[in-house]
C-alpha cells in the first residue's frame, strides 16, 4: 500500500508523561494518517503503554501537544476523547468480568460516537462470540476476551484505535486470527496504533513503525525499508 500524503489524523508533538518525578515518556513526536497502521515497539518499560494512555487522557501528567483531527485534545477528559473517535483497547483487555459479553460490547457504543458498527456486525466479525453473548465476560477464554475488547472498541465507532499488547498471553494461532482481523478493521478506514512486544508481528502488519527506548523515540521508519539489525540496535540501545 502506498501512503498518500494527507493531513494527519493524530499528531503528537513533544509529548512527555510524568508519574511524580519519573518521566515515562520523553518528548515524543508521532503522527498517524487516516487509515494507517502504525506500530510502536520497544522493550518493557520503554513508555509505550504510558504513551497510549496519555493520548486518551489517562495516567500521568502530560506536557506537549496531542492533536486529533486538528483539535488539541491534551486537556480533554477521556469521555470526550473517546466520543471524538479514539478508542483504547487496553493492556490486559480490562473487560468487566461480571457483565455479559453483550453488556461489555454495549458499553463501547455508550461511550463512543454512536454510529458505525452494530453489535450484530461485531458478532459477524467474531462469530464465536454470538453464542456467548449472555455469558459473563469473566468466564471467557483469553482469546475470546480479547475479541470482546476489540469489539467493544469497534462499537464506539472509532476513527483511530489504540491497541495495547493484544497478543499477550495468547496462543499463536489465535494471535494470527486477531491480526487478520486488525487488517480487516483497518480496511474500513480505521487508523490503528499497535503497541506490541512481538517485533516481527508488529513490523509485518504496520505501514510505519516507531521504536521506543527509555521513553524516547530511538528509531522511526517504514518496516520494509529498515534492516532487522538496525531495529534491534535501537530496540535494546547500544
Amino acid at each position: 500500500m502506498v501512503i498518500t500524503p494527507s493531513a494527519p489524523l493524530l499528531a503528537v508533538e513533544k509529548l512527555s508523561v510524568f508519574y511524580d518525578q519519573f518521566r515515562a515518556v520523553d518528548s515524543v513526536d508521532l503522527t498517524v494518517t487516516p487509515g494507517e497502521i502504525v506500530s510502536i515497539i520497544g522493550a518493557n518499560g520503554a513508555g509505550k503503554s504510558s504513551f497510549l494512555k496519555a493520548i486518551v487522557g489517562q495516567g500521568g501528567r502530560v506536557a506537549g501537544s496531542i492533536r486529533f483531527d486538528g483539535q488539541d485534545i491534551a486537556a480533554w477528559p477521556t469521555s470526550r476523547i473517546v466520543g471524538a473517535g479514539i478508542a483504547l483497547v487496553p493492556e490486559g483487555r480490562r473487560l468487566f468480568p461480571t457483565l455479559t459479553v453483550e453488556e461489555n460490547l454495549r458499553l463501547g457504543w455508550d461511550v463512543g460516537r454512536r454510529g458505525g458498527m452494530t453489535a450484530e456486525e461485531v458478532f459477524d466479525l467474531f462469530p464465536m462470540l454470538r453464542e456467548k453473548r449472555r455469558v459473563p465476560a469473566g468466564q471467557l477464554s483469553g482469546g475470546q476476551q480479547q475479541m470482546v475488547a476489540l469489539g467493544r472498541a469497534l462499537l464506539s465507532d472509532p476513527r483511530l484505535m489504540l491497541c495495547d499488547e493484544i497478543s499477550l498471553g495468547l496462543a499463536p494461532a489465535i494471535v494470527n486470527d486477531l491480526y487478520a482481523l486488525l487488517e480487516k478493521i483497518n480496511r474500513r478506514g480505521i487508523g490503528i496504533v499497535l503497541v506490541e512486544q512481538d517485533i516481527s508481528r508488529a513490523l509485518n502488519v504496520a505501514h510505519r513503525f516507531y521504536c521506543f527506548l527509555e521513553g524516547r523515540v530511538s528509531l522511526a521508519g517504514v518496516p520494509r525499508a529498515t534492516g532487522r539489525e538496525t531495529v534491534m540496535k535501537h530496540y535494546f540501545g547500544s
Binding site: 477521556t78 487496553p90 468487566f96 461511550v111 464506539s156
Partner: peptide, 11 residues
C-alpha cells in the same frame, strides 16, 4: 467491577 478500566475506555 473495575473503576480504572471504566475510566480507560471513557466511561
Amino acid at each position: 467491577d473495575d473503576v480504572a478500566a471504566a475510566d480507560l475506555i471513557g466511561l
